[in-house]
Every structure is written in C-alpha cells, then in structure tokens.
Design a protein around this nucleic acid. Structure first.
Lengths: 106, 106
DNA sequence: CAGTCAAATATAATTTTTGTTATAAATTGA
DNA sequence: TCAATTTATAACAAAAATTATATTTGACTG
C-alpha cells in the first residue's frame, strides 16, 4: 500500500466560500476545534469536516488531536502559488497599464 | 424579462486548469478565435466554448463576432479581487513572519 | 464503569461540473 | 447558389462535489 495521498489543488480549495471563510476564521484565531468552526456555519459538522479535509489535502490546514477534539490550524504557505500565478497578470489588470506596455514595446 | 445575468465567481473561474490555460493563451496573444484556442486542447470546441462562457460570466474575457468567428480577449481586472483576498494572508505565508508578528504583539 | 461529548467513517441522495454528440444558424469563398 | 467553415444550442451522460444521516470510535466525566 503506497499511501496514495490525494494531492489537492490549492485553486480548487479556495474556490468555495465556506472554505475561504474557514481560512479566515483560522487566520483570526490561530487554532480552533471542529465544533467551534462548525458553530459559524449553517451546515453540520460532517460537511465542515469534509471542507477541512479538502483544505488539508491542499496543505492549507494542519490538525492535531487534543483529547477528544481535533484542532485545526492555518498553513497559508500554499497560497504563495496563487500569488505567483497572479503576478504574471498584474500587467493586464487595467487597460492603461497594458496600453502603456504596448506603447513602450514599440 | 429582467436579463438574469449569472454573476460568476472569479475564484471558481480560475479553479479549473483548462480555464487558467485559456487565460494564459489570451494573455500571450491579445485576441484569439474559438477554433484557435480549441487547437491547444484535447477536448472539443463545445467544451472550450463552455469554459470561455464561464470566464465571460466572471468578466475575465470579452468576445466579439468578426465574420463567422468569435474572438476572445482577456480582461484581467477581476483577478484583482483574488489578489486583495490573498494580501490579507501574506503575513501568514511563512511561520517566521507569523512568529515575529506574535512576538511584536506581546 | 456508565454515560456523554467530539469526531471519524460509511453511505446515500442531490446537485454541479464537464464533456460529448447532434443539430441548426451564420458567414465565407468558389 | 453550393460547399466548407465557424459557432451556438440542446440533449445527454459521466464524473465529481456537496451535504445529510446513521454508525462507530475514542476520550473525558461523574
């Protein structure tokens, strides 16, 4: 058994608003158990747990068991990839910048 | 008929690798018709067209009909929202920065 | 030790996404 | 006008994501 660790795309992980809110909650509170995170949503624990699992597969959160609770913590490092991807398009963000670039190239 | 324009989330739009590649192709080539974009993928025209429709709903591309072809153009402006969202987490990107912040707060 | 709380797991139902094929419409060029 | 090209649209199917329920496991508490 070769431990088929499902690598998850960070872009997919942040595409869902629930998961973005989870990221924000963890950024604000350092470390939180599942039941406290769940309290911030309408959906049940299982659904929140699965969203956290997707974040974990993207390496955006870590967790550890303390007694009977599982506490989650943010690891924002993978977001760097998105920032890098975005940085390529900064020159296109407004037409003025793009136009300027075009003029300068000529 | 109130023209129910489906506002599409930019996060969802960029979550798909095909759509990220489309964005890149349009960034490199200014304006391209559907059939030329399709040539860069394995999938059929219809599928590519649908991906472009999602990008258009997120306002990431514009299109115009020239003769029998529809030419697509990148509008990178909506990516700014993602950048803004990311900027909030820059301080968490590496543990050192986070640790430093914590120490300074104490 | 019995009862309770927190969470994981397994399962299932539903919805969304993705891609195909088929068909029709519009444009171009001979 | 006729044939080829480009695209759009609709119907369909397969795959993935989302959420909920029920069951099980493990840890604390009285």
């Amino acid at each position: 058994m070769t431990h088929t660790y499902q690598e998850r795309d960070v872009y997919v992980a942040i595409a869902d608003p629930t998961r973005r809110k989870l990221i924000r909650l963890l950024a604000d509170s350092d470390e939180l158990p599942l039941h406290e995170l769940t309290a911030q949503f309408q959906m049940g624990r299982t659904a929140v747990s699965k969203h956290l699992a997707i974040l974990k597969e993207a390496d955006l959160v870590t967790n550890r068991k303390i007694g009977r609770e599982t506490r989650y913590r943010l690891n924002a490092a993978p977001l760097q990839e998105v920032k890098d991807w975005l940085s390529f398009y900064e020159e296109f963000w407004n037409d003025r910048a793009r136009l300027l670039k075009k003029i300068l190239e000529e």
